[in-house]
Amino acid sequence: MILVTGATGTVGSEAVQLLSARHQPARALVRDPDRVTNRTDLADEIEIVTGDFDRPDTLDAALHGVDTVVLVSPAVPAQEIAVIDSAVRQGVSHIVKITSKASADSPVDRRRGQARIEAHLAATGVAHTLLRSNAYLQNLLALAPMIRQTRGFVMSAGDGQVGMIDARDVAAAATAIATAPSTRAAPTGSPALL
């Protein structure tokens, strides 16, 4: 059984759709089940479960009987660490973490948070795969007003180059890893740069 967190977000919802298309038994963890759209498009193998990263009891219930977690969230350390700790308690064997460039000394808060989460995950000893996607193409739509006004956009990289990827490709990679143990051949925790 695979659990996908963030199942109503861009990457998580796509991962759930891909698992559904494969008729792969999975759970979609959501805070608000009313946000699940197109439930009729999902195969019967997809179970919708309600959980809250700030309530470990809901996480333990959602992770009961799960083998693999696709961990997608906004990188709030306390919340992702709660999911990881629940996964350990429930005997999860593999975590596919969607992350980004992680650096403990980065001036970017999100990157420091990712470093903290990744360090905690590594310390648990649970087998894991890190998918380090940098920036989603879908997010450019939110920058459209700035691009229209300035003919450019500003990101935390300053004048640096930013590698972008379609969130659907990240979901496809996460799904492939979660459903095929042979794709986990890299050493535990080795990042896959997307």
Rank of each mutant, 00 (worst) to 15 (best):
L3S: 03
G6A: 12
G6Y: 09
T10I: 10
G12Q: 13
G12M: 13
S13Y: 01
E14K: 07
A15P: 01
Q17I: 06
L18C: 07
L19K: 11
A21P: 02
H23N: 10
Q24Y: 12
Q24I: 08
P25N: 12
R27Q: 05
R27H: 06
L29R: 01
R31L: 13
R31P: 06
R35Q: 09
T37A: 09
R39A: 08
D41K: 01
D41L: 02
A43R: 00
D44A: 07
E45T: 13
E45G: 06
I46P: 02
E47D: 01
I48D: 03
V49F: 01
V49E: 01
T50P: 01
T50N: 03
D52G: 03
T58L: 02
L59A: 01
L63S: 05
L63C: 06
V66N: 01
D67L: 09
D67F: 11
T68M: 10
V69L: 11
V69W: 00
L71S: 09
L71F: 03
V72M: 12
S73P: 08
P74Y: 02
P74M: 10
A75G: 05
A75Y: 08
A75P: 04
A75L: 07
V76I: 12
P77Y: 05
A78K: 04
E80M: 06
E80N: 07
I84A: 10
D85W: 05
S86K: 00
A87S: 13
Q90I: 08
G91R: 00
S93D: 15
I95P: 04
V96Y: 14
I98V: 14
T99N: 13
T99K: 04
A104D: 02
A104S: 06
A104I: 04
A104N: 03
D105V: 07
S106E: 02
S106C: 02
P107W: 05
R110M: 12
R112A: 04
R112V: 12
R112H: 05
Q114H: 03
A115L: 00
I117F: 00
I117C: 00
H120D: 03
H120L: 02
L121H: 00
L121C: 07
A123H: 00
G125Q: 08
A127Y: 15
A127C: 14
L130Q: 12
R132L: 10
N134V: 10
A135F: 13
A135W: 08
Y136R: 02
Y136I: 05
L137H: 12
N139E: 11
A142E: 05
A142G: 08
A142F: 05
L143E: 15
L143R: 08
P145S: 06
P145V: 06
I147G: 01
R148N: 05
R148D: 09
Q149E: 14
R151V: 09
G152M: 09
F153L: 12
F153S: 12
V154Q: 07
V162N: 15
V162C: 15
G163Q: 13
A167I: 06
A167C: 08
D169H: 06
A171C: 04
A172L: 09
A173P: 02
A174P: 04
I177W: 07
I177R: 06
A178V: 15
A178T: 15
T179S: 10
T179L: 08
T179G: 10
A180G: 15
A180C: 15
A180N: 15
S182I: 10
S182P: 08
T183G: 13
T183L: 15
P187K: 11
T188R: 05
T188K: 10
T188S: 14
G189E: 08
P191R: 04
P191N: 09
L193Y: 11
